[in-house]
Computed example of a mutant assay.
Amino acid sequence: MYPTFTETKLRTFTEDVFKAIGCSNEHSELAADVLLKSDLRGIDSHGVARLSGYVRLWEKQRINAKPDIKVVHETATTATVDGDAGLGLVVAPFAMQIAIEKAEKYGSGWVSVRNSNHFGISGYHALMAVEKDMIGFAMTNASPLVAPTFANERMLGTNPMCYAFPAGKYPPLIVDMATSAAANGKLEIAQRSGKAVPEGWIQDGQGNYTTDPHALKTGGALLPLGSDRDHGSHKGFGLSATVDILSGVLSGANYGPWVPPFVAFMEPSPNPPGQGIGHFLGAMRVDGFRPVDEFKANLDNWIKRFKSAQTVDSTQKVIIPGEPELEAEANRKVNGIPLVQAVVDDLNLLAERFGVERL
């Protein structure tokens, strides 16, 4: 059993650490909210376990605690935002708010982002649009850890994408996924837990399957969604390429092998073609296509029908995208958020350094 902590305890701790590195109260609260949303939804790889990583990047002067986030290019329905090397946890919500405001006026809004950093879970940003009865889109490129189909070189990030749809009596339907066979955060969890990973997640330096979660440290690479060509890895490669182009090439951020690493001990590539990490966010008004109530009623019907689909095993059920995260959030709000001891120890080192209350 892992030690558990209340949402309030972890939120206060996280805010205090962000304030300690110089973030404003507003930015500290927002950044903490993004991380806590991840932990509440059971996505432990992108929650407070990442906090020390942001601090280390700040120490390397690769994260600006007081960014001047601004629009550098704009049309009625589109914009490009420069994040001034700020926390992606702050930059991405800023950009999504612009997309929402444009959608409110013109039906849809699309914003690309450059010069940012890791933005947490895609679902947080996409759900901002859902709250306004819009369909939300959020994606980001990431440091190169994934080898394209047939390759033995890291060229792409895990490059997650999220699509979020407002429903009626049911919770929003949220498709939030990495375009790699597994997110790097899951490897980190396996490393901390001392467990092997499933075959098909990662290859070693010679391109062979391995279950060693430490294989990235010895020249290995994550695999695209699908794992190999026979199982559709070219589709995962294509999805990842789409995220990389929309997030990086379109915005003026770095892309492919030039995306800066999240880990502070690895230096960014020399002579990069762009600035920082890139994101792409969008919002579409449902009533730009049909009345919102009609759409929600039909989506409710869609969800109900899929939930009732006959399964191969009578003990199983069809899982609607977003359901596991919603169940985790309901449970963790009551019973607390579990953290592996290695994460607790890591966070308490931050507490000692910055003079905040230990967990």
Score class of each variant (00 low, 15 high):
N25S: 14
F265N: 12
T80I: 15
L89C: 02
K296A: 09
P171S: 10
T149R: 07
L239Q: 01
G248E: 04
D204V: 09
F137Q: 02
Y124T: 11
F289L: 10
H46R: 04
S193Y: 11
R229W: 13
E357C: 02
C162I: 05
L299Q: 01
K66T: 14
K217S: 15
G205M: 12
K304P: 00
V91P: 02
P166N: 12
P172T: 06
T210N: 10
M134D: 01
K169V: 10
D44M: 11
F165S: 03
A99D: 00
V111R: 06
S193K: 15
E15K: 13
P321Q: 13
K235Y: 11
T140D: 01
N335L: 09
L239P: 00
G236P: 00
V356L: 14
G157T: 02
I121Y: 03
G232Q: 10
H231L: 15
Q316F: 07
L225Y: 12
D212A: 09
M161H: 10
S45Y: 08
V243Q: 03
F18K: 03
S52F: 12
E101P: 06
D313F: 04
A309G: 13
H214K: 15
E59I: 10
N152G: 13
T78M: 14
N298D: 13
F237V: 05
D204R: 00
S52W: 08
K102D: 04
A99M: 01
T4Y: 12
Y163N: 06
W258N: 11
S38Y: 04
R358S: 15
V17L: 01
L223Q: 01
D68N: 14
Y54V: 03
M284A: 12
G120L: 07
G238A: 15
L127A: 10
M96H: 03
T149P: 00
L187K: 01
T311K: 13
D230V: 14
G86N: 01
S116C: 07
G276Q: 02
G288M: 04
Q316N: 14
A151T: 11
E352F: 13
P213D: 03
L223M: 12
A215P: 03
D300Q: 02
A178G: 09
V249K: 07
A328N: 05
G226D: 01
P224R: 06
A95W: 08
T218D: 12
A167E: 04
G123Q: 00
S38E: 06
E199A: 14
A183N: 08
V286F: 00
A85Y: 10
A164I: 07
